[in-house]
Design a protein around this nucleic acid. Structure first.
Length: 106
DNA sequence: CTGGTGACGTCTT
DNA sequence: GAAGACGCCACCA
């Protein structure tokens, strides 16, 4: 059975370790498709209810949560990240220390 | 097959 | 910086 794009995205997101984050663009690049950042987001949007993923560890290329500010989803994602001791700066960007996860550098 | 829809990114004002 | 235009194309109806 050939893997769909969505399935490959889900597998990659599943591998993001606790306490680290990656951007949509980075994940797309890891799949060899640097221009499909948007589809990484779309894939997560399509995640089935029964599939548990650390989706909150995926943020946008500017280091911010990619939901409109102060929506329920935005607040949920921020809370889940803070629960993993991921810190936010005053401008709501993620600390550079945890931004930029890549499989090859753990 | 066709078209609408985007958890994005990059370039241009 | 900010804001807008535009490219990208997998998925679903």
């Amino acid at each position: 059975m050939i893997k769909t794009w969505n399935q490959r995205v889900w597998e990659l997101v599943r591998g993001i370790p606790r306490g680290r984050v990656a951007s949509y663009g980075q994940l797309a690049s890891m799949l060899g498709q640097p221009r499909k950042a948007r589809h990484v987001g779309y894939a997560l949007h399509q995640t089935p209810e029964e599939l548990i993923l650390p989706w909150h560890r995926v943020i946008n290329g500017r280091g911010k949560i990619s939901f409109p500010d102060y929506t329920q989803q935005y607040l949920l994602q921020k809370a889940m990240l803070e629960a993993e001791e991921i810190s936010f700066q005053s401008d709501d960007r993620i600390d550079l220390k945890v931004y930029g996860w890549h499989p090859s550098n753990q």
